[in-house]
Amino acid sequence: MTALSYAVSDSMTMLRRNLRRMRRYPSMTAILIGMPLVFLLLFVYVFGGTLGAGLDGPVLATGAAGRAAYVEYVLPGIIVLTLATAAQGVAITVAMDMTEGIIARFRTMAISRASVLTGHVVGSVIQALLGVAVILGVGMLIGFRPTATPVEWLGTLGLLTLIGLALTWLTVALGMVSGSVETASNLPMPLILLPFFGSGFVPTESLPTGLRWFAEYQPFTPIIETLRGLLTGSPIGNSGYAAVAWCVGLTLAGYLWARVAYQRLPNR
Results as ranks from 00 to 15, higher is better:
221 T>V: 07
235 P>T: 13
80 V>N: 09
71 V>L: 10
182 E>L: 15
164 G>H: 08
92 I>S: 06
56 D>L: 12
245 A>E: 03
206 S>V: 11
168 T>F: 05
83 L>G: 01
121 V>R: 12
262 Y>H: 08
75 L>K: 05
15 L>R: 10
244 V>H: 06
79 I>D: 02
148 A>P: 00
247 C>V: 01
55 L>A: 05
135 I>R: 02
70 Y>M: 10
4 L>R: 15
117 L>D: 00
83 L>Q: 08
55 L>R: 07
72 E>V: 04
63 G>C: 06
53 A>K: 15
236 I>G: 04
158 G>F: 13
216 E>G: 06
11 S>E: 07
95 A>E: 05
128 A>T: 01
29 T>M: 14
85 T>K: 15
53 A>E: 11
148 A>M: 08
201 F>L: 13
30 A>N: 09
81 L>Q: 03
211 L>G: 06
135 I>D: 03
107 R>I: 08
202 V>A: 12
107 R>K: 06
265 L>K: 05
105 R>C: 05
220 F>W: 13
261 A>T: 09
160 L>T: 01
133 A>W: 08
56 D>F: 13
77 G>Y: 05
96 M>D: 14
79 I>G: 02
96 M>H: 12
92 I>A: 15
228 R>S: 05
15 L>K: 10
150 P>K: 09
168 T>N: 05
26 P>M: 15
130 L>N: 02
11 S>N: 06
236 I>Y: 03
170 L>Y: 02
82 T>P: 02
149 T>K: 02
202 V>F: 11
127 Q>D: 08
237 G>P: 00
130 L>I: 09
78 I>K: 03
110 A>V: 14
195 P>G: 05
162 L>S: 08
219 P>G: 06
168 T>D: 03
60 L>E: 07
222 P>L: 13
130 L>S: 06
201 F>M: 14
268 R>T: 15
11 S>D: 07
221 T>K: 10
103 I>V: 14
222 P>G: 07
158 G>K: 13
227 L>F: 04
18 N>Y: 06
247 C>R: 02
116 V>M: 13
7 A>G: 03
232 T>C: 13
72 E>T: 05
249 G>V: 00
192 I>M: 15
96 M>E: 15
120 H>G: 01
98 M>V: 14
217 Y>N: 14
168 T>C: 07
241 Y>D: 14
23 R>K: 14
221 T>Q: 10
102 I>T: 13
131 G>H: 07
62 T>N: 09
33 I>V: 12
134 V>F: 13
241 Y>N: 15
123 G>N: 04
105 R>D: 04
229 G>L: 06
223 I>K: 07
82 T>K: 12
252 L>Q: 00
2 T>E: 04
15 L>M: 08
224 I>A: 07
8 V>Y: 09
80 V>D: 04
79 I>C: 10
1 M>D: 08
52 G>A: 09
129 L>E: 04
179 G>L: 14
61 A>S: 14
25 Y>S: 15
177 V>M: 12
